[in-house]
Design a protein around this nucleic acid. Structure first.
Lengths: 191, 191
DNA sequence: CCTACCGATCGGTAGG
DNA sequence: CCTACCGATCGGTAGG
């Protein structure tokens, strides 16, 4: 059996591009149909509706981030090394998973209940665990004794929106990018 | 003459709240009309259309940021002090101008030509000038010798999305917030 | 996978 | 400022 993308996968990827470029609400099912060379009605043979697409993109990405964070948490790395790994991971996702990351970051709020609440919980959980690593570093005296919430969001912001500017600017390779951002972030939080 | 908000100003503010909560595309003129207790058709006595609202919000904010940056540029402050001022200013805007900042940051892409191009130019200009301050610091040997584009966006990201999390979390006063973020950002970029 | 079509809602206008 | 209404477009379904 050859490795082929399912039509559903093709639709999901085309949708991610459109959601990134126009936003979820401004993307019509007819736009999407055109992008995959189908009539709008034919999309429904592969997906149940517009929201299923957004839902799939959001929760798939949430799982990838969750799994990586869990692996890093479980490791015996120091807080500094854990943050380093996490920064690197975010950069990799931003540079390789460019399109779906946008929906994951910016378009999830168009989910409806109960998915919206479920997603928010996942997001909250991720942030709490990330914060836990920062707290450990503070306790050990290697990170600055700053309110962990501020620390968390300042770090997270610097790495969460990389996809937003790297794509157009591209001053260097993803690897160099990861190295330099890690440098900035780590010296920003180290005591 | 008493100081009163014009109806237009009231509409703009209500729109900013809706755009923040639902996004520009998902906000209908009927939503907006209800928010200001009018019928949808009556909105057009005060504004020419939906896009004029977005345009006004985006360009008003762009001007405020532009003017502040220009004043800081013209000062005799050191690069470090200039960045400090800029960080503080972004935090003030994020905490005081909470709603319109969201449209300014996230919804501008729904502008249509020629406004879209005009806005992008203003944004680009702001970033180039901000980068100029960073470059000056690098030349003086006080900032890290890292690609200025990476430096710029990492700094800008940490302060551009404060409104997004501060509102819900609120771990401290805007003033403390500015102090701590300035600390993180500055030690992140200093050599 | 298509043609044909649904009711709902969109931004906006006419006319008073 | 309203009522009444426009054509366009929306997400989605029926039926083959």
């Amino acid at each position: 059996m050859p490795v082929e993308k399912t039509k559903k996968q093709i639709i999901l990827e085309a949708a991610a591009v459109l959601f990134r470029d126009k936003g979820y609400s401004a993307t019509s099912m007819r736009d999407l149909a055109e992008a995959v060379q189908l009539k709008a009605s034919s999309l429904y043979n592969h997906i149940s509706g517009k929201e299923e697409i957004l839902k799939t993109i959001c929760f798939q990405n949430a799982k990838v981030f969750h799994d990586e964070l869990e692996a890093i948490e479980a490791s015996t790395l120091s807080p500094t090394e854990k943050i380093e790994q996490l920064v690197r991971f975010h950069i990799v996702m931003a540079t390789e998973e460019v399109t779906s990351i946008t929906s994951f970051n910016d378009e999830w709020r168009h989910l409806t209940e109960p998915d919206l609440s479920r997603f928010k919980e996942l997001r909250k959980d991720y942030e709490q665990r990330f914060k836990g690593i920062l707290k450990a570093g503070i306790t050990e005296g290697i990170f600055k004794n700053i309110d962990p919430t501020i620390l968390l969001h300042t770090v997270l912001s610097s790495i969460r929106w990389v996809y937003d500017w790297y794509r157009t600017g591209r001053p260097c390779t993803p690897d160099e990018l990861a190295k330099e951002i890690t440098d900035i972030v780590l010296s920003g939080i180290k005591r």
